[in-house]
Amino acid sequence: MKLALEHRVNPDFALSIEARFPGERHFLGLSGPSGAGKSTLLRVLAGLEKQASYHCSWFEDMPDRRVGLVFQDGLLFPHLSARENLALAMRYRKQPHYEWQDVVEGCQCAHLLDKQVSALSGGESQRVALARALLNGPDVLLLDEPLSALDLMTRHGLLKYLQRLSCSGLNILMVSHDLHDLALYCDAVGYVKAGKMQICDEPDAVLNELAHQGEYRQQQFGLLQGKRLDVTELDDYGCVAFECQGQTLYCRTGALSGEQVKMLVDARDVSLDRQPSNDSSIVNAFECEIVTVGEVRSGQVLLELARNSTRLYSLISQLSFERMRLRVGETVTARFKLR
């Protein structure tokens, strides 16, 4: 997807975006610090900023497009019940893309429909607002922190639903501060800072680039992905196996998209040793090479590990680092729990 956008928000801040998301992707993510211009970007694409000029390849050959926008606080009409909010969206829908029942179940809001909007919690409002936008039959769906108030399980459930919708052809651009949600579920991710698109690439490349730039150091994640392996006996354990750079890994909460499995590994969860195998209870072992050693901060060292193009990070204590005498170029086994 190609995106070019110019908008002067005020004398001190202008949004100037020139981005090309790789490939023909349907589910794109956008992250960045507060005040970077992410929400304004969505408002421009939704046609709510009259002064802005923009071009988006998604909108080509779509003069009569319907662009849905879901705000962070839902903005359900307070004079209507949840059901009436959805019915209003249905009444003015452009095309009957989605069935009421599918959307209500996908957004997990069937039990909320007869409630007054004022009785809904923040997370419940967000789910109903998402359902309202979908029932309106959008060609493009813009989401501004739409799941920020949801618990982890529900959030992942909705992200999987959005991923399914994108696989069936719905174009989605989602803004989130949670870069890891975006990395797991989106096909490509952009990082906006001070009104400019800093990075725009595959999720793992964005995570790696941000690590090099020093962003998110305390919460550095590596993104491991690969093809799902058909190991039926694992079903009883509630986990799946996948092949990543010739090695078998196991995960539980990874995002499944067809045969592709993604797994985020927190640098704090990765321990290192020099044994190819041991009797540890830690299931995953990933043989890789130390590529860079970060500066010592607060008694901790961040190591960047790599196997071919796959990157992984390990945040270990300075004490361990010096005791083990780890060096750049050395091959180690990174161990992390099945999550």
């Binding site: 408002r43 939704a46 046609g47 709510l48 319907r66 662009v67 849905g68 926008l69 705000f71 903005l75 009409f77 209003l88 969206a89 003015y92 829908r93 452009k94 309202r132 936008a133 309106n136």
Partner: peptide
């Protein structure tokens, strides 16, 4: 809150 009007505009009203 004019954002309600913006939402309704995106819904095609």
């Amino acid at each position: 809150d004019y954002r309600y009007l913006e939402v309704s505009k995106t819904l095609g009203l």
